[in-house]
Design a protein around this nucleic acid. Structure first.
Lengths: 137, 137
DNA sequence: TCTTGACTTGGACTCTGTCCATTGTAGGAT
DNA sequence: ATCCTACAATGGACAGAGTCCAAGTCAAGA
């Protein structure tokens, strides 16, 4: 994750302890925290960090393309630091748990022109929905 | 849409003027209203209908599988009455407009077992993101 | 027509997220 | 090493979306 910090510094990001802590909290695979969860974990390391700063920092990371914003359920958005490897999400309808999954040989053939209604299509999102082992009891 | 009302009555739904009005508002193709928009349009026909009833009714229609809940942007959920023909969504990142599109081949190839993390996979959602003609200026 | 349990109402409340004026500080300049 | 200042953090008020609940209403079966 220090390479992330390097990259950000290179882009002219002013490095503050708050931003560093938020970046640290977002490290790892299969991490999909809500802004509030990020705040709680960040505050454990830096108690005086404010909610507004967490929201600001997450928003900046998303704009910079370092973090992906995922809203799978209409509740709180989740933040996925695994932005540099394309992947899809497997979501539990019970508890909302999310796992990253990788596309097989399935390149999501582009939408044919006659189905585009004049849109410029830029991305495709695939979400698998199901029930996780813990919720399946 | 009267066939919808028939189906609901058949399932033991008590038919009230509020429910009828909500069902009418949701009629048509490419309809993806927010709960609030449904409330405004319903209130135009039945002024005393309450927000809570609109939410209740939409929730019931979703449970019954007659309407699909779509949350594409972390803002208000949208309600899609076109639940009986499988389809995908094309969403404008600018204004949030949604169009229904139909799958070409069969992009829903199941997730391979080794990628399921023990989940029971029940559905796949595909969302194309882009910019609509009006926002492309 | 009567009865009753299902439905509706509206207002309070929660959760998520944004805004803004004020205060603090990273990091280049001296 | 210290000073400056533009950029960042703070926290509290605010807003939008949705849920909850106690009380009143009504659809439809007897």
């Amino acid at each position: 994750m220090s390479d992330l910090l390097e990259r950000l510094r290179g882009r002219g990001w002013r490095m503050t302890s708050q931003r560093r802590v938020v970046a640290e909290v977002l490290d790892g695979d299969h991490v999909h925290l809500t802004a509030d969860e990020v705040h709680v974990r960040a505050a454990a390391k830096l108690p005086e960090i404010s909610r507004a700063t967490v929201y600001n920092t997450l928003g900046e990371l998303v704009s910079l393309g370092e973090v992906i914003e995922v809203s799978t359920d209409g509740r709180a958005k989740r933040y996925d630091p695994n932005a540099h490897r394309p992947h899809q999400h497997l979501v539990c309808s019970g508890c909302g748990a999310i796992r990253d999954v990788r596309p097989q040989g399935n390149p999501l053939s582009d939408l044919p022109a006659e189905e585009r209604y004049g849109f410029t299509v830029e991305a495709v999102e695939v979400t698998y929905r199901g029930v996780c082992p813990s919720c399946a009891t």
